[in-house]
């Protein structure tokens, strides 16, 4: 249990142990947020924690434990692709949740999408009406 902190190996082990425990705790935080938050948008806020910071900490723990340099580019590829793909799914899920009204409007402080949706609906209505369209 007590690590040998006299050499660099002990320090690397201790740092990677802290990274692993914190990365696991972020997953637990996401699960608690999923269970306790009231609507879809706030649950999405909790769900991104293990996907970005948690994965970063765990990949860094792998890199520290392996003690080799060539593994770091592979870990960087994994993390960068996670950074590229997580916003795509979050965008799609958030937009679909907005369209299907899975949100509590009283919890929002700003709703910048509403003007766009209203404008698109007005344009569709104008196009559908027989005399006003073009």
């Amino acid at each position: 249990m007590n690590p040998d902190l006299s050499g660099p190996d002990g320090w690397i082990d201790a740092v990677s142990a802290v990274f692993m425990v914190v990365g696991a705790l972020l997953s637990l935080g996401a699960a608690i947020g999923l269970l306790r938050f009231p609507d879809l948008l706030s649950r999405m806020h909790a769900a991104t924690k293990p996907q970005v910071l948690g994965l970063f900490l765990l990949l860094a723990a792998i890199g520290l434990q392996m003690r080799t340099w060539w593994v770091w580019p592979v870990l960087a590829v994994a993390w960068i692709f996670q950074l590229l793909t997580v916003p795509v799914s979050a965008h799609m899920v958030g937009r679909a949740g907005y369209r299907t009204k899975h949100l509590h409007r009283e919890l929002l402080t700003a709703d910048e999408l509403e003007a766009v949706v209203q404008k698109a609906a007005a344009e569709a209505a104008r196009k559908d009406s027989p005399d006003g369209g073009g």
């Binding site: 692993m20 990365g23 696991a24 699960a31 293990p50 948690g54 765990l58 792998i62 520290l64 434990q65």
Partner: peptide
């Protein structure tokens, strides 16, 4: 994400 994290812990 939890599954990927568990795989990472196993490797580390």
């Amino acid at each position: 994400a939890i599954l990927a994290g568990a795989l990472c812990i196993d490797m580390a």
